[in-house]
Design a protein around this nucleic acid. Structure first.
Length: 223
DNA sequence: AAAAGTCTCAACCGCCATTCC
DNA sequence: TGGAATGGCGGTTGAGACTTT
């Protein structure tokens, strides 16, 4: 039987206070990111290590970019999702200053809805037959990983917001113009030597298989 | 003005992969 | 070599904010 990741008793949960944030920041500034397990005790925090790690990565890190997503970021998320599915950490890795959690939240609360609104199934990026056709976004890309998604709640409340959003969604145009974004979507695989050593690493294999497949979405997405 | 409905996002949970011993 | 410890990830939840009625 596996032990819980931390002692549930005596640890704080829920929202972080300013004091806790400051302790974590101070500790990491002094000692750097290290063993998350032992960090809380060393930093004087009554939190589990996982919680500290999450707070730091998703909120306190100095290089985090907060605020609304730019249109080019949104376009990139859509394209990467078509390619990679719900691999939020990989997608976030292509968006400087964005975290996987942020990307995931933004996808679930904004982009999914937009795609549905314009008649695209967000799970597989294919045109939904009963919806009016949108122009450019390619239906050709599919992702097995994304198929695991459950359907979200139906939307009523945000109907006005949707139309406002989609009016300027940019889905019909390529607006990739930010010099800050890493728009090189080439996926680097390990060198043969390294790969040989890490056969258990299925990630690169999976992606390569996907790319090798007949319907490799990159061909469709990047005409 | 207030209640009800809905959305957003920070945080948690549990699983899996990797590392350590 | 195998089990325990740890890190990392994706899915889910819930409190608070916001909008509608």
């Amino acid at each position: 039987m596996r032990k819980p990741c931390c002692d549930k008793e005596g640890t704080n949960k829920g929202a972080w206070s300013k004091q806790e944030d400051q302790k974590l920041i101070d500790y990491i500034r002094t000692h750097g990111e290290g063993c998350w397990r032992s960090l809380p005790k060393a930093a004087g925090l009554h939190r589990c290590g996982k919680s500290c790690r999450l707070r730091w990565i998703n909120y306190l890190r100095p290089d985090i970019k907060r605020g609304n997503f730019a249109q080019d970021e949104e376009d990139l998320i859509i394209k990467l999702h078509a390619l990679l599915g719900n691999r939020w950490s990989l997608i976030a890795g292509r968006l400087p200053g964005r975290t996987d959690n942020e990307v995931k939240n933004y996808w679930n609360s904004h982009i999914r809805r937009k795609l549905i609104k314009v008649g695209i199934d967000p799970n597989n990026h294919k045109i939904h037959q009963s919806f009016p056709r949108l122009h450019h976004v390619s239906p050709g890309a599919s992702s097995s990983a994304s198929m695991k998604n459950k359907e979200h709640k139906p939307l009523k409340y945000a109907k006005d917001r949707i139309s406002a959003d989609t009016d300027q969604s940019g889905l019909e145009e390529d607006t990739m113009n930010s010099s800050q974004l890493n728009l090189d979507l080439t996926i680097a695989f390990p060198s043969p030597v390294v790969e040989e050593k890490s056969k258990s690493n299925s990630e690169s294999t999976k992606i390569r298989d996907h790319m090798d497949s007949e319907s490799a979405p990159i061909l469709v997405l990047f005409r």
